[in-house]
Amino acid sequence: MVLSVSLCALLGYLIGSLSFAVWIAKSRGVDILKEGSGNPGATNVKRVLGKKAGNTVFFLDFLKGCVAVGLGLWIVGDPGGIAGAVGAVLGHSASIFIRFRGGKGVAVTMGALLVLMPITLLTGLVIWVITFKVSRYVSLASILFAISLPVTALILNQIWGLVSQPLVIFAALIAVLIVVRHRSNLVRLINGQEHKFTGKSSQ
Rank of each mutant, 00 (worst) to 15 (best):
W74A: 15
K26Q: 13
N39Q: 13
M1H: 12
G105A: 03
L73I: 10
S37A: 15
A171C: 13
L33D: 00
V115K: 03
A85L: 08
G84E: 01
A25C: 01
N157F: 14
P118G: 09
R183T: 11
T43Q: 05
G36N: 01
D61K: 03
F20M: 04
S201A: 15
A146W: 08
I147R: 06
V108D: 00
L63R: 01
V108T: 05
F145G: 05
G12S: 08
R188V: 01
S6A: 15
S6L: 15
R99L: 14
V115I: 15
H182A: 08
G80F: 02
I169N: 08
I98C: 11
L125H: 09
A85Y: 04
R181T: 05
L125D: 07
L162S: 12
S19K: 06
F62S: 04
V176G: 09
L11P: 02
G161N: 13
S142V: 07
E35K: 14
M117T: 09
F197N: 11
G65Q: 01
G16V: 08
W74T: 07
P40G: 03
W23Y: 13
I169R: 08
I147G: 00
L140S: 09
I174H: 02
W128N: 01
I32H: 06
H92N: 13
K104V: 07
N185S: 11
S6E: 13
A141W: 05
G81K: 05
W23I: 00
L116T: 04
L14A: 05
K64A: 02
G124W: 06
S17G: 14
C8Q: 05
I82G: 04
L113P: 06
G41R: 07
V106W: 07
V69L: 11
F145V: 06
W128A: 08
K200R: 14
L149K: 03
L173Q: 09
V69C: 09
V163M: 00
V151Q: 10
S135T: 15
G16W: 01
T120E: 10
F132M: 06
S202R: 15
L121I: 10
L18A: 07
A83Y: 10
L14M: 00
L10S: 11
G111I: 01
V5D: 02
I24N: 07
M117W: 05
I178E: 03
L173S: 12
I24H: 00
G77M: 02
V108P: 06
K51E: 15
T198C: 02
P150Y: 08
A146Q: 05
S6H: 00
G72R: 00
P40E: 10
I130W: 14
K46W: 12
T43D: 07
P118Y: 07
G77V: 12
L121W: 03
I82W: 08
P79F: 11
L173F: 14
V129Q: 08
L189Q: 03
A175I: 04
I178C: 05
A172Q: 11
G84W: 03
S37P: 10
A21M: 11
S139R: 05
A25V: 03
K133C: 10
G36F: 11
I190K: 15
L114A: 06
W128S: 02
R47W: 06
Q203I: 11
N185V: 04
P150M: 11
R28N: 12
V176F: 15
L140W: 00
N44R: 07
A112F: 04
K26H: 12
K34W: 06
N191L: 12
R183I: 13
A107D: 07
